[in-house]
């Protein structure tokens, strides 16, 4: 079991993961990578929730993390379906090609 001072490291780790995910979302062209990066960001948030839950000896944070996982699953399912549909129409999953919504 870790001492309390280690929670800081956990929290910093969550921030780092979040940043990596954010960079991935904005910088990668591939829609699949972007979706994965979103998952990464969700997990970073989850980690922070769990850390605080542990620090407070309160399991509500974990419960919320569960809900997050469910939402992430739904998001992945719909997101991947969209990617497949888009690919079928445009023959591409590159995000910067998909700009027809601006009109």
């Amino acid at each position: 079991m870790l001492p309390l001072s280690y929670f800081n490291y956990y929290l910093a780790l969550g921030a780092v993961l979040f940043a990596i995910g954010a960079v991935g979302v904005i910088a990668r062209r591939n829609a699949l990578i972007a979706l994965m990066s979103v998952e990464l960001m969700l997990n970073a948030a989850n980690l922070t929730l769990v850390v605080f839950a542990r620090a407070q000896h309160d399991m509500r944070g974990q419960a919320v993390a569960f809900l997050t996982i469910a939402v992430a699953a739904a998001e992945a399912a719909v997101g991947l379906a969209i990617v497949v549909g888009v690919f079928r129409n445009r023959r591409s999953t590159q995000l910067d090609d998909l700009t027809m919504m601006k009109h």
Partner: peptide, 14 residues
């Protein structure tokens, strides 16, 4: 700004 590229919008959010 409205170039249809989701990632540019995300930059704005960030």
């Amino acid at each position: 700004l409205q170039n249809g590229e989701v990632q540019r919008y995300l930059v704005g959010v960030l």
